[in-house]
Design a protein around this nucleic acid. Structure first.
Lengths: 157, 157
DNA sequence: CACAATTCAATTGCACACAACTAAATGGCC
DNA sequence: GGCCATTTAGTTGTGTGCAATTGAATTGTG
C-alpha cells in the first residue's frame, strides 16, 4: 500500500501517475477479458456487444446516432458494422429521407441473439465480486470523471 | 439519473449492463484522449508513455518483466518497443546470461525525456477535476475490480 | 550426456480506436 | 436557381491488444 503524502515531491509524481494510469488501463482490459470469454459463445467481440446493446434497446438507428451513444466515430463503426452485417445480425440501408445517412437495423437473427445474451450481465456482475450498488457507485464516479476529462479536452481545442 | 431498483427484471439487465460497460469503456478512452493531447509534444502515445514510466522508475528491464508490470505480452510490446527504438529513446540487447531474454534500456535521450514529462501528471490531475485523495480512492476501487476479474477469468480456464 | 518440456521474444492475423481525408448529399444564403 | 459550408459515411494509415504459432535457448530428468 503506497500511502503517498499530499506533498509528494515532483520527481515522484511520475510514479504516482503510473499507478493511476495503470489502474484504469488494467481495469478496462481485465473487464474486456472477462467479456471476451462470455461473448465467445455468441460470436461477438466486446465492442460488437456494445453496439448490439444499443440496437436491442433502441431498435433502428442511423450510424451517427449509434456513434453518439457509444462515443465512437465512423472510422471505428463502419468496419465493425460491416462485420456484424456479414455475420447476419444487422442490415444497413441508406435512408430514403436523407441519403447521406445509413440506417442500421437488426435482422431476425440479431433480435433472436438477445435471448442468448440475457445472462451475460449477471455473470459479469458475479465476476466483479461487487454487489450491484457498488457497481452503480463506481459507474457514477467514472461518468463524473469522463465528463471532466471531456470538458478539459475541449478547452485545449 | 437511473436509480434502478435491485429487483430489476431480467429483461432490463441488458440495459443496466449497457450503462456499466459504457462507463468503464468511455472513461478509459476519455482518459486516453487527454493523455494523447499532453503526450503529443513528447512524441509518445499513451501506451508508449506507460512503458517509459516503468523504465524511468526501474531502469533496465527484460521484456518479460516489462510485460508483467504492464499486463502486456510480447505481441503488443515487441512492435511498440521497436518504435521506441526507432525514435531513439530505447535500446534492445539480447542478454548475455540468457540469450532468450532481451534487455530494454533507456538511451540518454530516453532519460532526458523524463524532464519534459514531469508536469504531465499534474496536468492530468487537473483535467480530472478530482483531488488527489479522490483519485487514490478510485484507483483502489479499480485495482480491487481488476483483481476480482482476473481471478474470475482464471477459474474459467 | 540426451532429450523432452518449458521459457522467452518475435511474428502473424484479426479487431478495435482515432486522426485525416474523400465523396456524396443537404441546407442556407444570396 | 447557383454556390458554398456543413453533415454524413466511408476509407486510409498508424498504433495498440490479444490469440496462436514459431523458433531459439534453457532447464529438468533420467
Amino acid at each position: 500500500m503506497t500511502t503517498t503524502p499530499a506533498d509528494t515531491p515532483t520527481s515522484d509524481w511520475l510514479r504516482l501517475d503510473q499507478q493511476i494510469c495503470f489502474s484504469l488501463n488494467a481495469a478496462s482490459r481485465a473487464f474486456g477479458g472477462v467479456y471476451r470469454v462470455l461473448l465467445k459463445d455468441l460470436g461477438l467481440t466486446y465492442p460488437q456487444y456494445l453496439v448490439m446493446l444499443v440496437l436491442w434497446e433502441h431498435g433502428e438507428l442511423p450510424v451517427k446516432k449509434l456513434g453518439e451513444h457509444l462515443r465512437l466515430d465512423s472510422g471505428t463503426l463502419s468496419p465493425l458494422l460491416k462485420r456484424l452485417e456479414t455475420a447476419g445480425l444487422v442490415r444497413r440501408e441508406r435512408s430514403a429521407r436523407d441519403e447521406r445517412s445509413v440506417e442500421v437495423r437488426l435482422t431476425d437473427e440479431g433480435v433472436a441473439l438477445r435471448e442468448r445474451a440475457l445472462d451475460v450481465p449477471r455473470r459479469i456482475l458475479g465476476a466483479t465480486g461487487f454487489d450491484i450498488d457498488e457497481i452503480r457507485a463506481l459507474r457514477a464516479r467514472l461518468d463524473e470523471l469522463t465528463g471532466a476529462l471531456d470538458s478539459a479536452a475541449l478547452e485545449q481545442a
